[in-house]
Amino acid sequence: MSGALAAAVTARAQAASGDLDGARRALDDARNLAERLDGAEAADTWFGYPEQKHHVHLSQAYTLLGDTGSAYQAQEDALALTDSPSVMVRALLAVDTAACLHVDGDPSGAAEMASGVWERLPATYREGLIRSRAETLHRQLTGRPYALLGEALAS
């Protein structure tokens, strides 16, 4: 379990720092290790690494790599694993989707999606990872999309 989680976190960190080859190797490791988890190792507990969490990590890593096809697939896979994903899971995946829209050449769609997600979030969820990812997207935008997401983040 810890190896799969460590590989997924490493992939995200390497993608964020621009080490694309290292991130892809770590993604391969994360996928290979996660495929071998079972029972308590894959349980949705403090000590497990459930499949949904794995796909959320993959979504972020692929998003940071600019591999939107793989990111969208990871987002779909994560959402398909439960009838009612948590507020945090839905928000993280939606901000990743918004970042993918930006990479795919739709900054207005990206800003609209991220702003909508942000505005629907309860205040208690507007810090930490969600804020960090939304602010990262905000810094990448320009013009009206930048202003739109900035207004949402200021609310």
Rank of each mutant, 00 (worst) to 15 (best):
L148H: 02
H102G: 02
L27A: 03
D21A: 15
G18R: 11
Y62V: 00
L33E: 01
A40L: 12
A110K: 02
T63K: 09
D28A: 13
L79R: 15
L20M: 13
G3K: 13
E51D: 14
T45H: 10
D44R: 14
I130M: 06
M88F: 07
A4T: 04
V117G: 00
G48I: 11
E127I: 11
A23G: 05
G66C: 08
R31M: 03
D44P: 02
A13R: 11
R131C: 03
I130T: 11
R144Y: 10
D83Y: 07
S17R: 14
D28C: 01
R131M: 12
L93E: 02
D21Y: 07
A11L: 05
A4I: 04
E41I: 01
G69R: 05
R133W: 13
R36P: 02
R36C: 02
P107C: 10
D96P: 05
E119G: 02
E41R: 08
P145F: 00
Q52H: 11
D44K: 09
A98V: 03
A110I: 02
R131E: 13
G66R: 01
R139G: 09
D29M: 05
L141Q: 02
A71I: 00
G39H: 08
S17Y: 02
A8E: 08
A30S: 13
A98W: 02
E151F: 05
C100Q: 03
R131H: 11
W118V: 03
V87L: 12
E112I: 12
A6S: 14
G105I: 02
A43P: 06
S132D: 14
D21V: 12
R12T: 07
A154S: 15
T97I: 02
P122M: 03
D106W: 06
G3E: 14
A4V: 08
C100K: 00
L93I: 04
V87H: 07
Q140W: 05
Q60N: 13
T136E: 13
G128W: 08
T82H: 09
T63S: 12
T82E: 14
A6N: 11
D38L: 03
L37S: 04
D96T: 05
L129V: 10
A23N: 03
D83W: 05
R12P: 00
A11I: 06
G150D: 08
D21E: 12
E127K: 11
H54V: 04
D96R: 04
Y62P: 01
T97H: 14
L81F: 07
R133T: 09
T45W: 13
A4W: 01
G105P: 07
L79G: 08
A110D: 06
T10R: 15
Q52T: 09
K53T: 13
G105F: 05
L148G: 03
R120Q: 15
R131A: 15
